[in-house]
């Protein structure tokens, strides 16, 4: 499986080349186009219960689509729903990524996806919900974001603070705590930041340059209200 990003920037697309018999799994509805040799199947990753828990718990879709090059080699074009950058990561069996629920676009069949419970305070306050997706295994993993993706590399014990609604993914070796943005509670909220995540290295944190919730609030004022 070989993948490349087309039109990087706000409206990118991923081209995935599949050898005969190879499969790629993608977020439901992600396929834009594919070769006639490729079949689209839907699959409940992790079995029915796994899919159910992912749907119920993390809000991710119940079905993933599986694209299989059944009748010979072919290519697949995939795109996310929201405008924003795409990043391609390679999992080597050792590194693992934790991904917020809308961040997954596609992955090789050998990538394992499970929902993972966060601790109570992270779940309540982190803005990512109680459950996030944990990606492990080997192979290519494609993540998407809202806006541009920015990669932050942290050295051991190096700290970095990220507004929680700008998080896309982070490596399992990074730990984080939720804290208020300013010293006081009132200042935290009036500054517009509210709660932030303090990450501690080593590892990598991917952040998105736009906040989906903030964008939603902004665009709501332009939507005509129906009677």
């Amino acid at each position: 499986m070989k993948s490349e990003i087309l039109y990087p920037g706000a409206f990118p697309m991923v081209r995935v080349e599949l050898a005969a018999g190879e499969t790629v799994k993608a977020e439901s509805g992600a396929m834009v186009a594919c070769s006639p040799t490729v079949d689209v199947e839907s699959k409940m990753e992790g079995g029915f219960l796994g899919a159910l828990s992912r749907r119920m718990l993390s809000g991710e879709k119940f079905f993933f689509q599986t694209l299989r090059a059944t009748r010979g080699a072919g290519e697949v074009l995939l795109a996310p729903t929201v405008p924003g950058d795409i990043v391609i990561l390679e999992l080597d069996g050792v590194n693992e990524y934790l991904v917020q629920k809308d961040g997954f676009l596609a992955g090789a069949d050998s990538v394992k996806i499970e929902s993972k419970m966060q601790s109570l305070s992270r779940g309540l306050l982190g803005g990512e919900g109680f459950f996030i997706l944990r990606m492990s295994g080997t192979g290519t993993l494609v993540l998407n974001s809202f806006g541009a993706i920015h990669k932050v590399e942290l050295k051991p014990d190096q700290e970095y603070i990220v507004d929680n609604s700008h998080l896309v993914a982070w490596t399992a070796t990074t730990s984080y705590n939720i804290e208020k943005a300013s010293a006081g509670w009132i200042a935290s909220f009036t500054s517009g930041e509210g709660l932030v995540c303090r990450f501690r290295g080593p590892g990598v944190v991917y952040i998105q340059s736009r906040n989906p919730g903030g964008f939603g609030n902004w665009i709501r004022q332009f939507i005509p209200v129906s009677e």
Binding site: N95, V152, E153, L154, K155, P156, T171, T173, G201, P202, G203, V204
Partner: peptide, 10 residues
């Protein structure tokens, strides 16, 4: 493995 001079992702 992480450390001085090594990539951030380990």
């Amino acid at each position: 493995c992480f450390g001085d001079g090594l990539p951030g992702a380990g």
